[in-house]
């Protein structure tokens, strides 16, 4: 007969820069394990000593998703170029694997839910549980350990607990920190920006119209190819107009009441312009000069996809505005 297991895993392994982390449930404590490849470090939190657990939402998932999408678009662009150009198959296979990797990473990152930072507080100090980095995991862990903690500590309802907490700081004031305001029962009012100006979003609308126009011209170019000179001239004019309108939109939206989506899309458009410029420069140095038409086709296709998305976003953000 097998001996009962001393520790039950509460979370999966979370990967960090300094190693891997995992949280285990013991008989009367939590065990936080930090695996450092050739050694393990242990932190024990006894249920009777746990004073508080805080779970703070973080933007890690959104940041990684943004980077993932950027890398995915870039690698898909390269992949399409390699597929249509006369390049060795091995390069296409490598690019496919990389693109697939980014796609899988994006799907996994989003399917695991929102990210968070979880802290556990005892009389000794506050420690971060790096093994708990997703909101769903945090909820599951809390629902599992909360009854165990409450069972080892004196029973107290929420009102009594809050009353004691509210009374305690006046008797035992916490160490004063420079940026920490005095705790009060009534939350202080939300900080209001000094000057919030009204923005009608004209520059944004003009930018959206320009993007829509460019989508139409790109579709025409894909169907009936333009001559090199006309295309170059049109591209230069569009680029300068887009840069000018983007700068105008960024100035207009600063400290304004414009919807956050419109502001974000303006920055996304700036990112797209930078990406398009980099791609144009890269295409100038490509060794496959004979494939200029193919590369132009790829570029037009991705421009159409991204610009359509931006146009739709601007329309959604500004249709009920003004």
């Amino acid at each position: 007969m097998n001996a009962p297991r001393e520790y039950t895993p509460l979370t999966r392994r979370a990967h960090g820069i300094a190693g891997r982390y995992r949280l285990y449930l013991g008989a009367d404590h939590l065990l936080h394990v930090h695996e450092e490849h050739i050694a393990e470090r242990y932190q024990r939190f006894y249920f009777r000593d746990i004073q508080a657990i805080h779970v703070h939402h973080t933007l890690t998932r959104e940041v990684f998703s943004g980077l993932n999408v950027f890398a995915l678009i870039l690698s898909a662009f390269v992949l399409t170029f390699l597929a249509l150009a006369d390049t060795p198959v091995v390069l296409w296979v490598i690019a496919s694997v990389i693109t697939l990797g980014w796609l899988v990473s994006l799907i996994i990152n989003n399917s695991r839910g929102k990210t968070c930072a979880c802290f556990i507080q005892t009389a000794v100090g506050t420690e971060q549980l790096r093994a708990v980095n997703r909101l769903r995991t945090a909820e599951r862990v809390i629902s599992r350990i909360q009854p165990l903690i409450e069972a080892t500590q004196p029973a107290m309802n929420r009102d009594d607990l809050l009353r004691l907490v509210a009374e305690a700081p006046s008797l035992h004031p916490p160490p004063v920190q420079e940026t920490v305001p005095t705790p009060t029962l009534v939350p202080p009012p939300m900080p209001v920006p000094a000057t919030v100006k009204h923005c009608r979003g004209r520059a944004h609308i003009a930018l959206a119209v320009l993007l829509a126009l460019d989508v139409v011209v790109s579709l025409v170019d894909i169907t009936w190819p333009m001559t090199h000179d006309i295309r170059t001239m049109y591209a230069m004019l569009t680029l300068f107009a887009a840069i000018g309108l983007s700068i105008g939109a960024l100035i207009a939206q600063a400290n304004s009441d414009l919807p956050q989506l419109a502001k974000t899309l303006t920055w996304a458009n700036v990112g797209f312009l930078v990406l398009a410029l980099l791609a144009s420069v890269a295409l100038q140095f490509t060794p496959y000069k004979s494939e200029e038409r193919v590369s132009q086709l790829c570029f037009d296709t991705y421009s159409v996809v991204v610009q359509t998305g931006l146009c739709y976003g601007f329309w959604q953000a500004l249709r009920r505005w003004r």
């Binding site: 930072a117 802290f119 507080q121 929420r158 940026t179 920490v180 305001p181 009534v186 939350p187």
Partner: peptide, 20 residues
């Protein structure tokens, strides 16, 4: 009380009305 829970981002003490 050793310390009241604080916000991770702005380090402000979280008011007791937010507890539990």
């Amino acid at each position: 009380i050793a310390a009241l829970p604080t916000c991770r981002h702005c380090k402000a003490v979280l008011p007791p009305v937010q507890y539990n």
